[in-house]
């Protein structure tokens, strides 16, 4: 049982959790949007803008929680913007989402240079620090899994439970599911599919924004161009793998976090495998997941279909 206390294993587990949080939050957000019938391809852009605004807020104010709050707020506003196109204008949700992501890539890079110039010295902030649980953190496996993390990680895990409560137990969740499955029926019952979809996409943006902010104000303390590096797209795959269920999404996100942690560690080993192939690991896993799971299975019936009020 020596290996249980092995520091390499402990580091790996802790890193797996840490690396899974951004995609977990984005996927949780994607769940709300998709359950309401909106395919939120814009998760990537919402993460990136949350990542940037969170960083810059912390840099100016020195307040980490304010940074997280701003990232949530900006993410929600971004979600409302996307919903205007996807829900009100009934645009193609995939095209709008991709355009949105490209826009956010440019916007974040531009304003970053506007704020800090294009010099080589990248600005740093002091990120969230892990909470010290004392001896609890020393427990093999459980310690690095549960007791070596910062407050944002615990908030994220609480959001998973909260997401489950809302989705599976509350009337709000019931309404969201109804709108995603059969918006006409929801409307005949006096629900407003348009408003519910707006709200769901806004929540989706808020969570993705927080997920992005985690990268800059928790995991690293810096902001880099295209820092999310496709994690918003990975989140979409995680949604499918996790069957759009909060706990399923949690498990799937941990799997991807582990893949990421594994490749980071493998880079240090003299394995002879080129670095680029190792970096590919999470993305290859994404493609494999999408290939083996039929994308329509279990998807809400009205997913991706714009709804026209009183139409039909």
């Amino acid at each position: 049982m020596e290996f249980l206390a092995d520091p390499v294993l402990a580091g790996f587990i802790a890193a797996s959790v840490r690396l899974s949080i951004p995609i977990l939050l984005a996927a949780l957000g994607g769940m709300f949007a998709e359950k309401s019938g909106v395919l939120n391809i814009g998760l990537e852009g919402m993460m990136l803008i949350g990542c940037f605004t969170g960083f810059i807020t912390v840099h100016w104010s020195g307040n980490l929680w304010l940074g997280a709050g701003v990232a949530v707020l900006i993410g929600a506003i971004a979600g409302l913007g996307l919903a205007f196109y996807a829900v009100t204008l009934r645009s193609n949700q995939v095209v709008v989402g991709i355009a949105f992501n490209l826009l956010m890539l440019g916007v974040s890079a531009y304003f970053f240079r506007l704020a800090f110039g294009s010099g080589t010295a990248s600005p740093r902030i002091t990120p969230f620090a892990p909470i010290d649980f004392g001896p609890l953190g020393e427990i093999p496996i459980l310690g690095p899994l549960l007791f070596q993390h910062d407050p944002l990680t615990y908030l994220s895990l609480a959001l998973v439970v909260g997401g489950w409560l809302v989705m599976q137990r509350s009337t709000i969740g019931l309404s969201i599911k109804a709108v995603g499955e059969h918006p006409e029926a929801a409307e005949t019952l006096g629900l407003d599919p348009i408003a519910i979809r707006y709200a769901a996409v806004a929540v989706s943006g808020a969570l993705a924004g927080l997920g992005g902010a985690f990268l800059s104000i928790s995991a690293t303390g810096v902001f880099l161009d295209n820092m999310t590096a496709g994690r918003g797209y990975i989140a979409l795959a995680i949604l499918i793998l996790g069957r759009r269920h909060p706990f399923g999404v949690l498990v799937a996100a941990l799997l991807f976090g582990a893949a990421e942690a594994l490749q980071l560690r493998a880079q240090l080993l003299p394995s002879g495998v080129p670095l680029q192939f190792l970096i590919m690991l999470p993305y290859v896993l994404t493609i494999v997941v999408l290939a083996v799971s039929s994308t329509r299975s279990g998807a809400p019936a009205a997913l991706g279909q714009p709804y026209e009020k009183g139409g039909g």
């Binding site: 109804a178 059969h182 006409e184 929801a186 809400p300 019936a301």
Partner: peptide, 12 residues
């Protein structure tokens, strides 16, 4: 109303 095409959400 009882609509011709039922207004029931099949997964609920």
């Amino acid at each position: 109303m009882v609509h011709q095409h039922f207004m029931l959400v099949p997964t609920l």
